[in-house]
Design a protein around this nucleic acid. Structure first.
Lengths: 353, 353
DNA sequence: CTGAAAGCGCTTACAG
DNA sequence: CTGAAAGCGCTTACAG
C-alpha cells in the first residue's frame, strides 16, 4: 500500500487503497505464493499457515481481485444474454442457473437486448472482453437481418478465443454451437392430442406472431396432435396475436365480439397470452371451462395461481438452467452437442373433460 | 502467440490463443504503447498510425481484455443488486440504467437476491471482487436480521476500497451512502387527496405486508391525503395482503364475499396488487369504476393496458435509472447525497369522478 | 507523437 | 510444503 502518510493506516475512516494479497501475506507472515495457495486452490499448504492466512484475510476483509485472478486462471463467470429478463420463463431459467452455478463456483451475469441483433452483437462483444467461461444466448426472436451474421461472427470469435457458447431456444438450429432446445412441436402435440381426446373439436389457436421462433412449431404441434386424436382440420382456426397478456386479451375480445360460436377451446401459444384470454373471457362473462376451455404453454409460476388454474404444457426450466451451466462448465466437445427437452402436459382447471 | 506449430496460423478453424494487443501492434507495425493509445484513450497518436492500428484490430477481431484493462484504469462496470429482476418496476429502472450507461461508456450488470440478506451480502462480496465502479443496491424488503449488518459491512468494505455505493429504495434511510429515494408518503398523499376530493369517502386500503419497506409509508400517505381532503378516519379501512397479483385478488375476493358495503374505492399498495383487485372485481361482476374505483401505485407499463386503464401514481423510473448512473459515475461527495423523487398522480379510467 | 519499461494484483511452474 | 521469479494483457508515467 503505497501511502505517503503512514499515519493513514491508523485512520480507518479515511478512504485507502485496496487491501491486496501482499498485505494478507505480510499480516500472516508468509510469502505471497503461500497466501495465494491458501486462499486459492488450497493445494498443499501447512494447516498452520493456511489458518494464519485465512485469519489475516478476514481480519483485513480481503477480497481477491477477480480481474487479476481471471488473467491467470480464467474467469468463472458465465454470461447469459436474453431478449428480456422480465419474462417469467427467462426468469425461471436464470434462477436455476444461478443456483446451479453456486454449486460449481461459477457466477452468472445477465444482460438483455430486446432481441435486437445489433444490441446482441454489441453485448456479446462487450461481455467477451471479460473472457467469461461461457456465453449463453437465448432469443425468441427470429430475424434474417444482416446484423444476424454479426451475432454469429461475434459468437465464433468468442469461441475461437477459447470461450464456450451455449444456445438456448428453438431458433438457430443450424448453428455450430452446443444447444439446448425445447421440442415445441412435440410438446404442443401432447396438448393437441389431449384436447381432441377429451372431446374438444372446434378449436381456435391464438398463435402469436411469426417473429417468435417457437410460434410456428407450437402451432404445428397443436394441429398435429388434434388431428391425430380425431379432430377435423376444418374445425381448427388459427388466429395471430401479439405475444403478451394484452395480445391475448384483445384477440379474444375480438373473437367474442364476432361470436365464439361453438368453440370448445382457446389454445394459446403461451401462458402469458392465455392469461389475457382468461381475462377477456371473464370480462365478457364467459365461463371457463364451462363454456370454453383455455390452455397455455410454459407453466410459468403464475399459471397455477390463476382462476381457474391453467391447463398448460410445463417446460422444465429448472433442468434447463442446470443443463446450461453443466454445458458451460465442460470442455468443448469435438462435435456440437444438442440437447432437447420436451414439456409435460399439465392438466388443471381451465379445461373441461 | 506462443504457438508451437507455426502452421496453426493458417488453419482458421482450429482453436487458437486469444489475439492480444501485442498481435495488433505487430500487425500494425507500431509499438505496444502506441497500439494501446490508439485503441484506448485516443490520446496523441498520429492519425496515420491510429488508422493502421484500428484496421489491424478489426482485421484480427481484437477485443481488449476487460480484466487487464480494469487492473490498470479501473472498471467501467456498474453492478445492480435487486431482490427480483422480473418485477416490472425494477425492470424499468434497469432498462433506463442500461441505456444511460451506454452514453457514458459504462456497463451495467445485474444480480438478484430474493431479498435475502445472506445472499445480498454474498453477492456484494462476489461482485466487489470485480472492482466495479459502483454497486447499486435496491431492496424492498426490510429486515432486522443480524445478517443485515453483514450487508452493511460488505458495502462499507467495498466503499473503503474505493468503490461507489448507491442505494435505491425507501428503506435504509439512515445508512451513510448516496441514495435515491422515492417519497412514498408524499406521493401517496397526492392520491389520497385526489380520491377524497372526487368524493370517495369509504375507502379500503390494500396495504401489502409489513416487510415491504414502502408499505407503511404509502399507507400513511394515503390516509393523510384522504383526511386532508375531507375524508373521515372512521371510513378508512386497512387490509393487509400479499404483495402480488394473487394477493390483491384473494384479498378482494374475500372482501367481496364479506360484502363491500358502500365502499367507494379500493386503494392498492402498488399496481401489481391493483391488477389482482381488478381481476377479482371482474370475476365477481363488479363494475369498475361504476360500482367501485380502484387505484394502484408505480405506473408499470401494464397499467395503461388494463381494462379499465389504471389510475395510479407514476414513479419516474427512467429518471431514477439515469440518476443512479450519474451518481455511480461521479466521485464520492464528502457527504452522502440523498435525492428524493416524488410520483405524479395519473388519473385514468379506473376511478370515478 | 512514440517506445522501452515499470507496474496493476494475482497464479503457477520451478527449484528447493 | 514453501518462496523467488516469471508472466497474464494491458496502461501510463518517463524520457526522448
Amino acid at each position: 500500500m503505497p501511502d505517503a502518510a503512514g499515519e493513514d493506516a491508523w485512520m480507518p475512516h479515511r478512504a485507502r487503497d485496496t487491501v491486496t494479497l501482499r498485505d494478507v501475506a505480510a499480516e500472516a507472515g508468509v510469502s505471497l505464493a503461500t497466501a495465494s495457495r491458501a486462499l486459492g486452490g488450497g493445494r498443499s499448504v501447512a494447516p498452520e499457515n493456511a489458518r494464519k492466512v485465512l485469519e489475516a484475510a478476514t481480519r483485513l476483509r480481503y477480497t481477491v481481485d477477480a480481474s487479476a485472478r481471471a488473467m491467470n486462471r480464467g474467469s468463472d463467470a458465465i454470461a447469459l444474454i436474453a431478449d428480456d429478463l422480465a419474462t417469467p420463463a427467462v426468469a425461471a431459467v436464470v434462477a436455476a442457473m444461478e443456483r446451479q452455478a453456486r454449486t460449481v463456483d461459477a457466477f452468472v451475469t445477465v444482460s438483455s437486448t430486446r432481441g435486437l441483433p445489433e444490441l446482441q452483437a454489441a453485448t456479446i462483444r462487450n461481455l467477451a472482453g471479460f473472457r467469461p467461461r461461457a456465453l449463453v444466448l437465448t432469443s425468441t426472436r427470429i430475424s434474417q437481418d444482416p446484423a444476424e451474421t454479426r451475432v454469429l461472427d461475434e459468437l465464433l470469435a468468442f469461441e475461437r478465443n477459447g470461450g464456450r457458447v451455449i444456445l438456448y431456444g428453438s431458433g438457430s438450429v443450424h448453428l455450430p454451437f452446443d444447444a439446448i432446445a425445447v421440442d415445441d412441436r412435440g410438446s404442443a402435440r401432447l396438448m393437441g392430442e389431449y384436447l381432441a381426446r377429451t372431446g374438444h373439436r372446434r378449436v381456435i389457436i391464438l398463435a402469436g406472431t411469426r417473429e417468435r421462433a417457437y410460434a410456428a412449431a407450437r402451432t404445428s404441434g397443436y394441429v398435429e396432435g388434434l388431428l391425430a386424436a380425431g379432430a377435423d382440420v376444418q374445425d381448427i382456426r388459427i388466429v395471430n396475436c401479439a405475444v403478451s397478456r394484452q395480445g391475448g386479451f384483445d384477440a379474444t375480445a375480438q373473437l367474442i365480439r364476432e361470436g365464439l360460436g361453438g368453440t370448445d377451446v382457446l389454445v394459446a401459444i403461451n401462458d402469458t397470452v392465455a392469461i389475457g384470454v382468461l381475462s377477456a373471457c371473464r370480462a365478457a362473462g364467459i365461463d371457463v371451462p364451462g363454456q370454453v376451455s383455455v390452455t397455455g404453454f410454459d407453466d410459468v409460476p403464475l399459471a397455477r395461481d390463476l382462476t381457474p388454474r391453467l391447463t398448460t404444457v410445463a417446460l422444465p426450466f429448472t433442468e434447463i438452467g442446470i443443463r446450461a451451466i453443466e454445458m458451460a462448465m465442460r470442455e468443448r466437445p469435438s462435435e456440437p452437442v444438442r440437447e432437447t427437452f420436451r414439456g409435460t402436459l399439465t392438466v388443471r382447471g381451465s379445461t373441461s373433460g
